[in-house]
Design a binder for these strands. Sequence first.
DNA 1: GTAACGTACAACCAAATGGTTGTAGATGAG
DNA 2: CTCATCTACAACCATTTGGTTGTACGTTAC
Lengths: 121, 121
Amino acid sequence: MVVDELSQADVDRIFHALADATRRDIVRRTLTQEASVSELARAYDMSFAAVQKHVAVLEGAGLVSKHSRGRERIVRGDAAQIARARALLAQLEELWRSRFSRLDAVLADPGPGVPDPPAHP
Amino acid sequence: MVVDELSQADVDRIFHALADATRRDIVRRTLTQEASVSELARAYDMSFAAVQKHVAVLEGAGLVSKHSRGRERIVRGDAAQIARARALLAQLEELWRSRFSRLDAVLADPGPGVPDPPAHP
DNA sequence: GTAACGTACAACCAAATGGTTGTAGATGAG
DNA sequence: CTCATCTACAACCATTTGGTTGTACGTTAC
């Protein structure tokens, strides 16, 4: 599979979730070591509820998952979802590398530096 | 340089700019072939001003650049900025792959393999 | 059992977002 | 010159976002 099934709305959610420094830090942290929501909340200068909301945004984007452990909710970063986002960007770059394959532009505009224009009888 | 100088606010802008399907499409389009703002505007079901705003967001994030050509403003996608965003995601993934190397007890990290576990008498 | 902890969720608020319309300035075409 | 085109930008509006506080509930510790 080149890019697995991600709707535009899914991609919207992923990039939106990554467009916040606190959320990126939560992903970074929970990728290396899972943590409870309150452990995360202690790390940032905002209320518990605010951190809870950030985690919810990340979870909605599939960038972290939560599971229960006693009374705690353990948050774990999902590297696979990040890999999907990276693949999307790689696709864009690939599109750029192949930008000259649009040959119909050549017909209208031979451009400078074309030493040997094709003769057409 | 591993990651060139991008402030957190820069990264915020890049991912926020990518968190919209119309904007991603503009990037896709202008990566393969540059286009004027009005050419772009014709492609979407919204006002010229709305497209103009999207282009401004992309430009603020460094994902496209604009230059004048007569009375037109030509928009061109910037693959280098996309590469930077991709590198950030790659960094996160790398962090994940090395998540077991965090043995903070091991101050002088001997690296993977741990050939000689310390004896404690 | 009771108290403390961890979480969920609602209600509220200021600011940002994404769209609109309208106006005005440059530039190219006839 | 005159007119149409392309762009910039302001003003406005509904919705979303990112934060707050407060309340309620399940779980662990004592």
